[in-house]
Amino acid sequence: MKKTDLRFKVANREALIGVGLAIFNFVWWFGLAYGLGDRTPEDYTYIMGLPSWFFYSCILGFLIMVVLVIVAVKFWFTEVPLDDEGGNLE
């Protein structure tokens, strides 16, 4: 059963990466939206036509998440066989 333990170790680490990304995503989304958006609309600055809180939180935030997901998958995710037969981790 040792080989399956190894696969689960990979799986556990990747699940934690998912949780970490989600926490980062939330903090970014929340912090910028309410940090920059919590003032009277007359004082808003605009980037590419959109209020800065919206641009940073929703547009830039989305792009950053895409980049982070690509980086995480390419560098930290490991390919493992999913079937129990052939479950060698070499």
């Binding site: 699940a15 990466i17 949780v19 989600a22 989304w29 989305f62 997901v69 999913l82 129990d84």
Partner: peptide
């Protein structure tokens, strides 16, 4: 729109958290 963007998280979170463990167990 801000509220709707909370859904970006589903794009990676679900598959990462259920992830390989769920796929392996489901097969087993």
């Amino acid at each position: 729109v801000l509220l709707a963007m909370s859904q970006v998280v589903t794009g990676y979170f679900v598959l990462m958290v259920l992830g390989k463990k769920f796929a392996i167990m489901a097969r087993r």
